[in-house]
């Protein structure tokens, strides 16, 4: 069940129809639900590319692995800076790893 939308944080991008995650999803999977919040229309069709998670301006999307493949509750959170991403990975035993990766030249 890859993208999990944190409903309290999602503001549907305030757009009339297309939130940012819906714009970028390469599989056309994100859409606005009836509550005007983003939702994934078919979790099984997600490629886990994390485009939506990186694009979300509210940090309201979390990418999760299907449980069939990996255990709960590991987390991978990107923090998007101007020219770099700071990733935090927390494994099922609570071990934290951080990575700062440049993603664009100045």
């Amino acid at each position: 069940m890859p993208p999990k939308v944190i409903l309290e944080k999602c503001d549907g991008c305030k757009a009339e129809h297309e939130p940012l995650c819906e714009q970028v999803c390469p599989g056309n999977l994100m859409t606005l639900g009836e509550n005007k919040k983003a939702k994934c229309r078919d979790l099984r069709d997600c490629w886990d590319c994390m485009s939506c998670t990186k694009a979300c301006p509210q940090g309201a999307i979390e990418t999760r692995l299907p449980y069939q493949l990996g255990y709960y509750p590991a987390k991978l959170t990107p923090l998007m800076g101007t020219n770099q991403i700071t990733w935090t990975c927390v494994d099922i035993n609570g071990k934290i790893e951080r990575f700062v990766i440049k993603n664009r030249n100045d």
């Binding site: 990996g70 590991a74 987390k75 991978l76 990107p78 990733w87 927390v90 990766i101």
Partner: peptide, 20 residues
């Protein structure tokens, strides 16, 4: 190595974490 994965398939790092 994990940094490289984060650039290509970030969820692989999550996968390793989900396996502990």
């Amino acid at each position: 190595l994990k940094g490289d994965y984060l650039n290509e398939r970030p969820t692989f790092v999550l996968f390793l974490a989900a396996r502990g």
